[in-house]
Simulated assay, not measured.
Amino acid sequence: STFTLLFSSSWDKETIRLVQTVTQRETVLFIADARITFDSFRNCRIATATSKTIITLNPDTAEANQLYTCIRELLEAGGLDDQDILSGDSVRLDSISDVLTVNQLKARSHEHGDVFHCITYGFITNLELSSSMSKVIRKRCAKCKFLINEESQTCSNDACPNQGQQYQATEGFELLVDISDHTGTLHSCNLAGTVAEKTLGCKSKHKIFMTTLQWKFLLERCKIYLKVLPSTRRSRMRASILSCALADPVEVKQKLASFVA
């Protein structure tokens, strides 16, 4: 059976230094002699490093190479990135307080390797709602979340558990938008799922003519909550919109005063 594997805090300096060098989705770990226990708080099994634990980064073995190749193929197909877009985020919006300009959040992403959340007051400068419905509303396999091939009407994931069977699909908004302010532009931010529905004020199943919705946001200052996934050696920085609404001019003036001064 599968289970979530986490490393609890370890005070071993060598282990801490080693883990800090790990690049998300770029590193294969071989872990030997870790203590496995069930954590009732996280509701999953966790692995704890002990004095006997040996951690090897990117071991040169056939199994490690196969695993790395498999993950790269999933990334290129969008199978893993999709989860970041579609699963939403459990963080409470009222717990996000950092206000950053576009250039500041770009700089933080390049300087630090961790996912972070922030608020930016910017303009949506690209919102393609006039495209064909297949580019705005996407169908995904209900089992593995991969895209449904429009031509064959089958799941695009060769390893899908439902491959060869009649598929069940879900559909929803999946948009890429650009966010700009006085410091620059953040390209191709993900606006998807229920966040897109709340932002646009309609559900994807309605399939209404949405050109008029563009002008609700284009060139209007918005208060945008973002989840930023930093860049790696093989992928660029990505951002998902957690909330987007027209901003209060008074609030914008107060929050951006320090940036203008």
Rank of each mutant, 00 (worst) to 15 (best):
S1C: 04
T2A: 02
T2I: 06
T2G: 08
F3E: 11
L5M: 07
L5G: 01
S8N: 08
S9A: 13
S10T: 15
W11C: 02
K13M: 01
E14W: 03
T15M: 07
I16K: 03
V19A: 08
T21S: 12
T23N: 11
T27I: 00
V28A: 06
V28K: 06
F30M: 06
F30A: 10
D33P: 01
I36A: 01
F38G: 00
F41N: 05
C44M: 12
R45C: 11
I46H: 01
S51T: 04
N58W: 07
E63R: 10
E63F: 10
Q66W: 07
L67G: 03
Y68D: 08
C70Y: 13
R72T: 12
L74N: 06
E76I: 10
E76T: 07
L86P: 00
R92C: 04
L93M: 05
D94Q: 14
I96K: 13
S97M: 04
D98T: 11
D98K: 15
V99G: 05
N103E: 14
Q104G: 05
H110S: 13
H112Q: 11
H112P: 00
G113V: 00
D114N: 10
D114V: 07
V115R: 08
H117S: 02
H117E: 02
H117Q: 09
F123L: 09
I124G: 00
L127A: 05
E128C: 04
S130W: 03
S134N: 12
S134V: 06
S134E: 13
K135L: 08
V136Q: 11
R138H: 13
R138I: 15
R138T: 12
F146Y: 11
L147V: 00
I148E: 15
E150P: 02
E150T: 05
E151H: 08
S152A: 09
Q153Y: 05
S156Q: 10
S156V: 04
N157R: 06
D158F: 11
A159C: 02
C160S: 04
P161M: 03
N162A: 13
Q163A: 15
Q165N: 13
Q168G: 08
G172S: 15
F173I: 02
F173K: 00
E174K: 01
V177H: 05
I179E: 12
S180A: 14
H182L: 07
T183N: 02
G184D: 08
G184N: 05
L186M: 13
L186Q: 11
L186R: 05
H187Y: 11
S188N: 10
S188H: 12
L191P: 09
L191S: 01
A192H: 06
A196G: 05
A196V: 04
E197C: 02
C202R: 08
S204T: 01
S204W: 14
H206A: 12
K207Y: 14
K207I: 04
Q214E: 15
Q214V: 03
W215Q: 12
K216L: 11
L219G: 00
I224E: 07
I224W: 14
Y225A: 15
V228I: 15
L229D: 01
P230W: 10
T232W: 09
M237T: 13
R238M: 09
A239I: 03
A239L: 01
S240D: 04
L242N: 03
A245I: 03
L246R: 13
D248C: 14
P249N: 06
V250T: 14
V250E: 14
E251V: 07
Q254P: 03
Q254L: 10
K255S: 07
S258D: 02
A261T: 11
